[in-house]
Design a protein around this nucleic acid. Structure first.
Lengths: 94, 94
DNA sequence: TTTATCCATTGAAATGTTTCAATGTTTACT
DNA sequence: AGTAAACATTGAAACATTTCAATGGATAAA
């Protein structure tokens, strides 16, 4: 497992430090594999550019992976990044 | 292990989303048990109120535990909170 | 009790984040 | 080609965070 550097851990922490973004991740989990962008407009009460902004932060840190499908985009959790981040957190412990 | 709620996870993520605070945690790790506040003034190039502000965020989320010792305060990692947070992250995965 | 040390608080400037209306870009459908 | 649908970008307002000088409060030493 890759050893995550503090700068990356900081960015991932920041990406996870917002209620909307945690909600997006729980929606992906709920869908069990892929989440379509349009699904979020139902469950998240924010304007489209705001949701887009949050998705960008999650994809830029590779916490979620986007896949284009015609006009639509679907997202999946990237378990590897979560695991690397968990590894970093384990490393903080005594 | 306690199931951490999203609001708490959000706060812990925020506490971990700053380079100074990650540096403080790595200094605690380096000291291997307790870190004295004064140790940070050597290793972190910020004014005392700034360091105080960061320590407050880490203690308010219970990521670190303070202990008073006369005029001084020493800090230790709270592994339980880290473990609970890791549990939350595991729960995000598919 | 006076003085020094350690940490906390206040208040304000600088910076960063979140949000949305308006608009742009890309793809699909007719 | 023309229109519609899905997502991205821009720019600006509102809000939050970071930083520090100045000051305050508590404990220890002289």
């Amino acid at each position: 497992m890759a050893q995550m550097d503090p700068k990356t851990a900081e960015k991932i922490s920041k990406a996870l430090s917002d209620p909307t973004r945690l909600k997006i991740l729980s929606e992906i989990k709920k869908k069990n594999d892929w989440l379509y962008c349009v699904d979020l407009y139902d469950s998240i009460n924010l304007a489209q550019p705001s949701i887009c902004h949050h998705l960008k932060q999650l994809t830029e840190t590779a916490i979620i992976l986007p896949e284009k499908e015609g006009r639509n985009i679907k997202y999946a959790m990237n378990n590897e990044v979560i695991d690397d981040y968990i590894g970093f957190l384990q490393g903080l412990k005594k």
